[in-house]
Amino acid sequence: MKQPQQTIETIAVEDLINRVHSFHDDGYRLVQISCAAEGEAFEVTYSFDKDLTLTHLRIPASPDKPIPSISRIYLASFVYENEIADLFGIPFTGIAIDYKGTFIRTSIPHPFGSSQISVVKKKPEGQHE
């Protein structure tokens, strides 16, 4: 258990672009963007790396509130943003290479999105035992 503790700083969507800009200027590398459900809503987390230490920024998200894309600062973000848009149905505005829902094609739309989660909840707990 020698792994470092991680802190995740939650910020407002409005501050995102500014903060990411300063990470870029300080020479951080974009490691990943991930999305997870948090209660009824979602949270999107951006991870940066410098000198092998991870720093995380987190913003709240929901399917009806678009998130500004950071692909103008870190071009690489386009893969993660398209992925989140396809799997969670969370829209991003201004992605440099926007696949418009064809990056990961799935049999059901937005398998991780809100409608899906309520379906999972209706199932009785532990039905697999």
């Binding site: 991930s34 997870a36 993660y80």
Partner: peptide, 28 residues
């Protein structure tokens, strides 16, 4: 580098598991 994000809330099933695999990071 691979990133495994795990998020759990006290149940025996995790709430979220997310893998950022190296190939995805290398696509750009």
């Amino acid at each position: 580098e691979v990133i495994h994000y795990v998020k759990a809330n006290g149940k025996k099933n995790l709430a979220r598991h997310r893998v950022r695999t190296p190939t995805l990071a290398n696509v750009p």
